[in-house]
Amino acid sequence: MFSNVKFLQKLTKRHPGKPQQFEQVRQAENASETIDRGAADVPVNNISGTVGRYRDFDGEFRSRNRGGEARFQHILAAMRSGTSLPPVSLYQIKDDYFILDGHHRVAAARALGRDTINARIVELLPAKKSLENQLYLEKITFRDNAGLLKSIQLTELDQYHHLELQIKQHQTWLAEEKLIDVSYKQAAQDWYQTIYLPLVTLISRSGLVDNFPGRTTDDLYLYISTHQWNSSKPRQYGIGIDKLIPRDMEAFRKKMAELKKHEYPDMKQDITFFILLNVDGRQERRIIDKLMQLEPVRELHSVHGSIDFIVKVVLSRDLLSSDAELISRFTHGNVRMLKGVISTQTLIPGLSRYKDDPCP
């Protein structure tokens, strides 16, 4: 499920000086089947082209004709004053939108720094066979079947059925809990709010996605949730995740429902270990200086006996990482490579007690 994928580049690129041509993109994507999406707020930055009028407007949808400036200024003033204006009309092809009617309103929204604009949307589905299009069609099919307003962005084919399974399991649980029939869409809405969003929030706050180039937070949601709730195979990642994310999906839902958003737990935890070093005595001072420059090194002790130094290290790791891998990477990348280090040995404490700790 989690192999590397190289994404295809977009077939057409945006040009800051001129809008994309709708017909050109439509033909490139072989997009003809239409769906009326109704009215919705559309990100202004996703409006990239025009239907049949690309010579009349620049890349910001400002009119190239003198007569258009007065119209633009009039609409700009109306928007500033809060006057209600009718929605613009857009064609959609994947994540790009093309103006059928409302160029001046879009230009004014851009000029005012608005993030979104209300629009009536007709989507044309891409039929050109490509990985990008297959992923897109799977994405919107799942979203529409579930009745969700926002899409979930996965980067591998044939993975949305895992999310559908979670929703169906949640649908069964809700029906038994409430003793009423619950539709798939009703279950999907509740799953999105009480299971999906809390776990995605944990993942986003952890910065975990930075460790997986080309992946999305939703990819990590799928990976973590399926391994935690739907897999019976032994876990290959770090210990401790069961305390944060119970093995039962509904137990996780209940746990998160009892917390406010700012009380959500952290997906990172500290790991403490010790490195025992033997070094060349002629390099001792330089090695000490180098080690003490490393932020994770908290203590360094010179000792007499079969070893020369004991170094205490505290690393922060996410709950998908292996302790052994993280310790090995730090030791080999920061300690073993120092000139004068003869040998190293790592120790991970088991039970730790401190004198000031209360007795269990």
Rank of each mutant, 00 (worst) to 15 (best):
F2C: 07
L8E: 09
K13Q: 14
P16E: 00
F22S: 15
Q27W: 09
Q27V: 04
E29L: 15
V42C: 05
I47D: 02
G52Y: 07
F57I: 07
R62G: 01
S63T: 11
N65R: 10
N65D: 07
R66Q: 00
R71W: 10
H74L: 11
G82Y: 01
S84F: 02
I93N: 15
I93C: 15
K94I: 08
L100R: 12
H104D: 02
R110L: 05
L112V: 04
G113Y: 07
R114L: 06
A119R: 01
I121L: 14
V122C: 14
K150N: 08
K150A: 09
I167S: 12
W173M: 06
A175K: 14
K185C: 00
D190I: 10
Y196S: 11
L197H: 01
V200N: 07
T217R: 04
I224K: 03
P234C: 10
R253E: 06
K254Y: 02
E263P: 08
E263N: 12
M267F: 01
N278M: 06
E284H: 09
R285W: 05
I287Y: 00
G305T: 12
L315M: 06
F330A: 11
N334A: 08
V335D: 01
M337K: 12
Q345K: 06
P349I: 03
L351R: 08
R353Y: 11
R353A: 15
Y354R: 14
D356M: 09
D357A: 02
C359S: 11
C359R: 12
